[in-house]
Design a protein around this nucleic acid. Structure first.
Lengths: 153, 153
DNA sequence: CTCGAAATTGGCAAAATTCACTGCAATAGG
DNA sequence: CCTATTGCAGTGAATTTTGCCAATTTCGAG
């Protein structure tokens, strides 16, 4: 599957997505050409989906995070479509997953402040007409965020 | 604070962290040099914290995600330190936040499969001796993940 | 409100570095 | 001994980075 070099490369690239072939070569202790071939393969085969700049939320004035559990009024095709569409078009929804338990979805929401967060839920989410019930959990402090995926070694 | 070009640049770089100055220049409709200066400023001022490769979890054999709410046995300095240390050293813990509500922390965990996820909680987290209680919510399907932060425009 | 000086910012061009990418001989591993 | 992979070297291109001048905006004095 993945050899030790590929695993190392993934590890490094998750921490520094702009590492050049040369830098990777140094970090991984393998000459540039095989490193380059591996990176290319990792990209082509979809191990690396894309690259992204990680932005400081506070600097952007986004000081409030919350997790919102959502249950829908029904589970018709239509309701689900409406809700998913809302999730995808709303930039404030950072993550969304369907989950086990009493609720259908768990969303991670960002906003400038707690009031704005509540407003988002009230004014936008509940107005969809497909949401039966929600439970909001506010983030007091972010201890760890967007940790890299573990690459077994 | 941030002008419209900087906001656009952030928007693009969150989607493509490897966009070159030239590419940004085209996307933002501003010549390369001011674009370059802006990117540099965004990096130096900490708006851009770092760059990262986004890796496909399934390809790595990581097929199980879960959200785990955790409450500690007490809130002594010591217990909190132990728990936080565990969170930071555990690669399987992708996110952690202290939260409002009945629990103290909400963690996002990844594992190869549900059993491995449960094992992680049982064998590793509960063995810390500082965890009183946990509630695990399994992710059935990821609808949206790691969406870029909204940059007001 | 107008005018003009100062400061900021954009655009162009050039330089220098670095980078991606490709053959090929050497090498290692089975 | 054969196959797969490495390391090296080279090449051409793309990228970053800097300096300079023009354009634009800002802002205060009149």
């Amino acid at each position: 599957m993945l050899d030790k070099y590929e695993r190392l490369i993934l590890k490094v690239l998750q921490k520094d997505g702009r590492a050049s072939t040369q830098e990777l070569s140094d970090a991984v202790d393998l000459s540039p050409s095989p490193v380059w071939r591996r990176v290319k393969r990792l990209e082509d085969d979809g191990y690396i989906q894309r690259y992204a700049a990680i932005v400081d939320s506070k600097k952007l004035g986004l000081g409030a995070f919350g997790y919102v559990q959502v249950s829908l009024v029904d589970h018709s095709e239509n309701s689900i479509t409406i809700f998913k569409h809302f999730v995808h078009k709303s930039e404030q929804v950072l993550e969304c997953a369907s989950i086990t338990g009493d609720f259908d979805f768990l969303l991670k929401i960002v906003a400038t402040d707690p009031e704005a967060l509540e407003e988002f839920i009230m004014k936008h989410m509940l107005r969809l007409g497909v949401v039966r019930n929600t439970t909001t959990t506010f983030v007091l402090r972010r201890i760890k965020s967007s940790g890299a995926l573990p690459v077994d070694m």
